[in-house]
Nucleic acid binder design. Sequence first.
DNA 1: AGGCTCTTTGAATACGATTGCGAAAAATTG
DNA 2: CAATTTTTCGCAATCGTATTCAAAGAGCCT
Lengths: 344, 344
Amino acid sequence: MRKQNPKASKPVTSRQLAALIGVSQSAVSRAFTPGSSIAAPLRDRILQSAREIGYQPNAIASMLTTRRTNIVGLVVSDMSNPFYPALLEQLTQGLQRVGLQTLMFNITPGANIEEQLVAIRTYNVDAVVIISATVLNDRTLAWATEGRRALLLNRLGHDDIMTVCCDNTAGARCLVDHLYETGRRRIGYVAGLTKSAIGMTRYSAFTSRLAELGMRLTGTTSQEIYSYDAGWAGALELIPQKPDAIFFASDILALGGLDAMKQAGVAREIAAVGFDDIPMSGWPGYSLTTYRQPIEKIVDKTVELLTVAEPGPTRLHALPGELVVRASTAIEPRSAAALLPLAP
Amino acid sequence: MRKQNPKASKPVTSRQLAALIGVSQSAVSRAFTPGSSIAAPLRDRILQSAREIGYQPNAIASMLTTRRTNIVGLVVSDMSNPFYPALLEQLTQGLQRVGLQTLMFNITPGANIEEQLVAIRTYNVDAVVIISATVLNDRTLAWATEGRRALLLNRLGHDDIMTVCCDNTAGARCLVDHLYETGRRRIGYVAGLTKSAIGMTRYSAFTSRLAELGMRLTGTTSQEIYSYDAGWAGALELIPQKPDAIFFASDILALGGLDAMKQAGVAREIAAVGFDDIPMSGWPGYSLTTYRQPIEKIVDKTVELLTVAEPGPTRLHALPGELVVRASTAIEPRSAAALLPLAP
DNA sequence: AGGCTCTTTGAATACGATTGCGAAAAATTG
DNA sequence: CAATTTTTCGCAATCGTATTCAAAGAGCCT
């Protein structure tokens, strides 16, 4: 066991500060505890001298008595999809703003997942936020969240756990509508993980809206992963079926699909839409029409659910995103004539 | 202040477990402390019953006595460059493997940076790893790392703080050599942050190698940020000067540059190289020649420096990366004739 | 058997804060 | 001004574990 770093001169304790200015240690504690019973002049005097000698309360000690750590454990498992870094960044900042720290758990799928998560229990995190799509089975999930507030982000399917996500149904319908309005009638679908509830939600919203508008599914393929390569492969599978648009279950799939379509020389004939609005979708080389996930709203709702005294009975919070129209669904001149207004 | 979650039935304590099986609390503690003085049979018996009644040591309490948290604070400030998520992911996993947890500090540049970092001190993190490029001034840096082991990742310029990074000099020279070997003689440079020591290192290695090979710099521009848009703008600035290759200070710049060059119709005539090897650089749409940062080596070295008893006097650890040749420097038929072998 | 060393164990204390309780001080009231 | 109520503050117990110290036990050798 590594020895205490010698250059670490022990920090001042509340007792030392108390002795220094001739008050009780409890007074110091109260000076730093908002809402506690202490007279303003005394508090100010204590805070003042604390600043002078550089005293800061030891959070560890206070965790021990209060049994609150102000730490949320963030369980993540795969950041290769560029959507997650963006979410992660905003989320940690949002939590920080209300005084919550983020302890990362980046788990590698495999056998010893509980081993990778022991600290979530031994460190007594106040809450657990889970972003990893599918790595946790129900038993592990229950074990990891036992006794603390838990929240699923972009992962559906647990009625008893609070969930915050984008309104995938509205998003998928909205994208189908947009394709319809711009004249596409032969629409294919490239799925990512069909096992994941989120993939299922988008897919079923897609098909049901298709049916409502009187279209048939022109082709579908699933790659069981959200990645550029998967999108590429998926697009190649669908191209022979001559769709005039392809609905990709996520942006990262769509980018691969767009490149595949360019390579195959059909990019001009086949529209494409994605889902998420990752930064690359806005790059001129892709210019992908997509449904933007409301990251800010998601973060706000998450922070709210973690900080509010009593979360309320609603479990699923599906937040509306926003259609972002770009060149990948631009109307080709030759098909523009065939355009029909969309009946509501 | 939120009340203790009612459904959180207090976890078992070491004393309870001790009472249950008729040993002292110290024995329980020792059973969970590797290398402590306890007989094997007793240890096994304790661990066994611990497993049965679900006892796990409370890390908070042990932090208080040992003054070690096994937490490293990770200071990050901008994850828009896709290189960072990859590094972050590997790093957290690497730390986790040796029993270290990662507490994220995602700071937004601005006035109250110390306020965003107080937890780094009050939570008594054992070590601080800083990835954020330039947000911390020297005073803040000293304040945040005071008394604990500190380490800079991909950010140079502090001789007194341990630093781990890619060998930017070797990388830049290697890329110049590659351009030379493939016949380019008029090379331009698109810089990101010239203030950052890492940007400076790449740039000066670039120019010095250029000089060694008897070439002149054909043009340079700096955008003071690493982003797709900046690369786009930089490329457009250089194109009029008719370079036959552009050296981008990072991949994300290069991707923007490539798209700009495609748009301008000069992509075939101008080679491009980047630095980092982010995932997108391998996409067929870009196929960017680049110098791959040795993320795995960087992580290993970081973990080593954080866990070793005495870090040794070496401060700067520059680790070799790897040239990745792709289509963006493919030799054009018409220039192939002019090829000269590179004199060592 | 006795003296010795080495290992194992428990009792007691420390870590640095929070908080219930009661006393003292201050504010309010009649 | 006395009688109350309300605030403020210090004492001391507590949180759950690590660790020192001393005592007890286990071998070992002569």
